[in-house]
């Protein structure tokens, strides 16, 4: 019995485009860097916990940037921390994705005018894929952001990195 005979009887061969297959693998197991900054991090942890269960989207925290696919910037980015975030980002292997969570990480939030120590938006140091508004966003809002990121990954191509 050769391989060709079994092709249809056992149905264990899937035909797909390489792009689709790789994108499907990537978007189905986004391992986020275990990294939190402020009150948004509490919501992010709630999203990871059993009530909301981030793991159903394949997201789980990974405690080293070298094995992480995404980083969720969850909280106020101070100037002191911005240098460290940049360094963490540079340590992550490609392809890497960034979700900016909450008003502080998006644009400085309540610290936009008098926050002498706050970076007014994490996109001033690293490229952001998805912005999640809110102060802080509920876990459902973070899920929406993640689904948007998955949608973005689904449309990527090996020939051209779009994210």
């Amino acid at each position: 019995m050769g391989l060709l005979d079994k092709q249809f009887s056992d149905s264990n061969i899937v035909v797909a485009k390489v792009d689709d297959l790789i994108n499907w693998a990537r978007l189905s197991s986004i391992w986020q860097l275990g990294f939190g900054l402020a009150c948004c991090a509490i919501e992010m942890m709630a999203a990871s916990a059993s009530n909301y269960d981030f793991d159903r989207f394949g997201v789980m925290p990974r405690n080293t940037p070298r094995q992480a696919d995404a980083i969720i910037i969850s909280g106020t980015v101070t100037l002191k921390m911005a240098l460290r975030i940049k360094r963490l980002y540079e340590q992550m292997p490609d392809p890497k994705y960034i979700i900016s969570m909450g008003s502080c990480a998006n644009c400085g939030g309540p610290y936009w005018d008098h926050g002498y120590h706050v970076l007014k938006g994490v996109d001033r140091v690293i490229p952001v894929d998805v912005y999640v508004p809110g102060c802080p966003p509920r876990p459902e809002a973070l899920f929406e952001g993640l689904l948007k990121l998955q949608e973005k990954i689904r449309n990527e191509s090996l020939r051209k990195k779009s994210a």
Binding site: L79, L83, D113, L119, K120, R124, V125
Partner: peptide, 9 residues
């Protein structure tokens, strides 16, 4: 600026 990052909004 601080380390090349713009500080004001």
């Amino acid at each position: 600026f601080y380390h090349g990052m713009k500080v004001p909004y």
